[in-house]
Simulated scan of single mutants.
Amino acid sequence: MRYPGLPDVLRACGFPRWKKPLVRQCFSPRQVIFSAAGEAVPRGSWVIVWGMSPAPPGAERVLRLEDGFLRSVGLGADIVRPLSWVVDGEGLYYDATRPSELETFLATGDFSPEECVRAASLRQRIIALELTKYNLGGEAWARPTGYEPVILVPGQVESDASLAYGGAGIKTNLALLQAVRRENPGAFVVYKPHPDVVARMRRAGQDEIRCREWCDEVVTTGSLPSLLKAVDEVHVLTSLAGFEALLRGKKVVCHGLPFYAGWGLTQDVQTLTRRNRTLSLDQLVAGALLRYPLYLSRTGDGRLTAEEALDALVDWRTRSGNRAPWWWEGYRTVVRVFAGVR
């Protein structure tokens, strides 16, 4: 853990029961004491919170926890445990309003040749193994003939904090598609709604049903790796699919301010003046996949290297066969009711 002075006892506020063992695993061997969201903690406490949740009264230092970039085989909305999380004591990677630890790594880090070689090898394995954040599988997608460029626009959950803190202008999937179509009238535009929305675990965005009017094809079941391989460009607000496209050597246009924008690797509609360094792709990968996340073992209490995490994801995907058990849709129905999603 990269925090000098980290005490032996930490407080964690507002975590659901299923996440508590994972929080303990993240911060082992330190003791973690849990409390309800907003409940005061002893003055001077170091406190762990999820995402952009506010710090409770009494907190001296806040550590923010979020999903990592190689998360799981399955959706977080389905309460599938993560293989990777990030811990950030400065901000969070999707909060462009202030620096995060990841941004600091990228802006000031000294990336050795050995670290860049390791990052390149990791990136090549991710491509070869067709790994993404959720590894949901799906049908192979065939590129239409006679069109150029073919542009992928990945949808996002519009209520997510990443749009609130990194959207920087456009805030909806429909507005993004409209901008892409206006700027690329002759392109073949493919829209892929967010998998949480497709699974009806999260609400569709404002007027998202109208997205069909602004694209040539809506893909709900096509696999993301096959889409990324087939298209020429990917246009995003802050979607991690833009980072996954960069790994595969694709042109990425950022209409928002995701963590991978502003380093000379993307075409950026918005600018962030404090990001004024040009990075190589492997330096970006080293910061985002080697230095920033924690990789957690699914079979024990320990941690994994990034390379071991890839092996674990492949084994997980192979064992699951990307097939949900027979009771899964019933479970999702119950979750939708409690979440207020129909």
Score class of each variant (00 low, 15 high):
E130T: 03
V334C: 12
E39R: 06
M52H: 13
G287R: 07
Q178T: 11
D8M: 13
V47L: 02
R181C: 07
V314C: 12
C211L: 04
G256V: 13
W326L: 15
Y295W: 08
E130G: 10
G166M: 10
R303V: 09
M201K: 11
E60C: 11
W85R: 13
S320E: 14
C116M: 15
S84R: 08
L163T: 02
P113N: 11
C26S: 15
L10K: 01
L136H: 04
L70V: 10
R342C: 03
L176P: 11
D268K: 05
G249Q: 09
P258H: 04
R275F: 02
V190R: 00
V337M: 12
Y147G: 00
T278I: 11
P325E: 05
R2E: 13
E148C: 09
A55D: 04
D282I: 03
R332S: 08
K171C: 12
P16C: 09
P293G: 08
D301R: 13
G256N: 01
P185C: 05
S226N: 08
W214E: 14
P144R: 00
G74S: 08
I33H: 03
L163F: 00
Y191G: 05
N173T: 00
P258N: 05
N322E: 12
V334R: 11
G166N: 03
V341M: 07
V150H: 01
W327H: 14
R291Y: 10
V252L: 03
A140E: 13
L294K: 03
L224V: 15
A140Y: 01
D160W: 06
F15A: 04
P149Q: 08
A286Y: 05
R336Y: 06
Q31F: 01
E66Y: 02
E213S: 11
W85S: 00
G321Y: 05
G155E: 05
Q124E: 15
Y94P: 00
A179R: 14
L177W: 11
F34G: 00
C116Q: 15
G167Y: 05
T220W: 01
E233A: 13
G256R: 04
R212C: 12
P21E: 08
V231S: 10
G321P: 02
G222K: 06
T104P: 01
P154I: 03
G166P: 01
N184G: 06
V32F: 02
L247G: 08
T97F: 03
G186H: 13
F105A: 09
E307V: 15
D67C: 11
G302H: 07
T333E: 12
V153M: 08
E114V: 11
V47E: 00
G58H: 07
E183N: 14
G186L: 05
N276I: 09
D315C: 09
R342Y: 12
G137Q: 08
A309L: 06
R298V: 04
R210G: 07
A187N: 02
G287I: 10
L281N: 02
Y292I: 11
F243K: 09
Y94D: 05
E103N: 05
L310T: 06
V198A: 08
S159N: 09
L257K: 12
V285E: 03
R277Y: 06
A204D: 14
V180N: 10
L10W: 01
N276E: 12
G44N: 06
R317L: 13
I48Y: 03
F34D: 03
S45I: 00
V198K: 03
L257S: 09
C26I: 14
L102V: 02
V49F: 09
V236A: 00
P193Y: 07
F188Y: 15
A339N: 13
L310S: 07
R248G: 06
V189T: 02
